[in-house]
Simulated assay, not measured.
Amino acid sequence: MSEYKLKPGKLGEKIVNAYKGIEDSFTETFLEEDGSMKTGGIAEKATSAYRKIEETVVGGYKNVENAFVEAFLEKVDEDEAEPGTEEADHSADK
């Protein structure tokens, strides 16, 4: 079965970098060194807000990715592939 990975391009890179910035800020503000949550009244609200942002960003990117795949890519079974389009067999490299 074929697997696809979208090349993010300039816009995708900006989205990923913005998300990483949000994630880094959250981590520095609300997580201890061991990964546990810092205590405090705002921790639950911040975690909830962060998860909503994460779902929105990741979900939006996945929607764009799925629309691109649906519009421009076509899955081809291995036995239907045209000569010269198959992935190289790297079994000897292992």
Rank of each mutant, 00 (worst) to 15 (best):
P83H: 02
N66W: 04
A43W: 00
L73F: 10
E55F: 07
N66S: 13
G40D: 02
V58I: 13
D79F: 10
E55N: 14
V57P: 00
T27C: 04
V69A: 15
A92Y: 10
T27H: 05
N17F: 02
I42Q: 10
V76H: 01
K38L: 07
V16P: 00
G9E: 00
A18R: 04
L73K: 11
E86I: 05
G35N: 00
A46G: 08
G21P: 01
G59W: 03
N63D: 15
E3R: 09
F26K: 00
M37T: 07
L73P: 00
S48M: 08
T29M: 08
E70A: 11
H90W: 10
K94H: 12
G60E: 04
P8R: 06
E23M: 08
E32Q: 15
T29W: 00
N63G: 07
K7L: 08
E44I: 11
F68P: 00
I42M: 15
A43M: 08
Y19F: 15
E55V: 04
S48C: 03
I42P: 02
T39K: 12
D79T: 10
N66I: 05
G84L: 01
T47W: 04
G9Q: 01
E44P: 05
V64S: 03
D79S: 14
L11I: 13
F68Y: 14
T29G: 06
G35R: 01
E80T: 05
D34G: 04
I53S: 09
K62H: 04
G9R: 00
T39V: 09
K75I: 06
T56Y: 14
I22V: 15
Y50E: 05
K62N: 15
E23L: 07
S2W: 08
E86N: 08
A71M: 06
D77E: 15
E54P: 02
F72D: 03
T56K: 11
K5Q: 15
E70D: 15
K10C: 05
G41S: 09
A71T: 07
L6T: 01
V64H: 00
E70W: 01
E82T: 07
D89K: 07
E80F: 07
T39Q: 12
E3Y: 10
G40S: 05
V16Q: 13
A92V: 12
D34H: 02
T39G: 11
A92S: 13
G12H: 00
I15G: 01
L11D: 10
K62E: 12
T85H: 06
A71Y: 01
T56A: 14
E23D: 14
G41K: 08
G35F: 00
E44Y: 07
E28N: 14
L6W: 02
S48Y: 06
D93I: 09
T56I: 13
A92K: 10
P83G: 02
